[in-house]
Amino acid sequence: MNEILKILERDGRLTGKQIAAMLGKTNDEISDAIAEYEAQGAILKYTAIIDWERAASERVTALIEVKISPQRGDGFDRIAERIYQYDEVDSLYLMSGSFDLTVIMSADSMRDVAEFVYAKLATIDGVTGTATHFILKKYKEKGCVFKKPEQQEERMIFV
C-alpha cells in the first residue's frame, strides 16, 4: 500500500474517499492504512509548501555546515539532538564528507540567523566549527517549482 504514501506525498489534501476511489479500495481500507501509517510514524505530518516571497513576507533561509567532535557512546546523535531541539532549525542531516551536519534554518532576518549561529549553535559543546551559507533564491523544494509555469497559448483543438 505504498501507493497511498506516494499519493499523499504529492497532495496531502486528498481525502481518504478520493484516494480509495483512485486505488480501487474501500474507504475503510484507506482510512485504516493511513491511521496505521500515522501511528507507526511513517506519515509524520501534513503541511504546505509555501513561497514566502510570493506571500510578500520576508524570510531568510540559511544552510549551515557544522563540524562536531563525536562523543564516546553517543556518536553524533547527542549533539544532533541538542541542535534540532531549536525551533529555528527546519532540517538537520548527518553528512558524509568534509563536515558532519547540515543545518537548514529559516528566520525573519540575516541578523536572526547570525545570532542563532554564534549565540546558540557555535556554543554547543562538541561543535568545533560552522560555515553559514545564505540561500539567495529558491527554485524548487520537495518536488515543487517556485516559479509559476508559463502557459502555452490557449488552444481550441479537437483530438
Partner: peptide, 8 residues
C-alpha cells in the same frame, strides 16, 4: 488512479 476516481 484518475480513471478509477472519475468512474467512481
Amino acid at each position: 488512479q484518475r480513471r478509477r476516481y472519475l468512474y467512481d
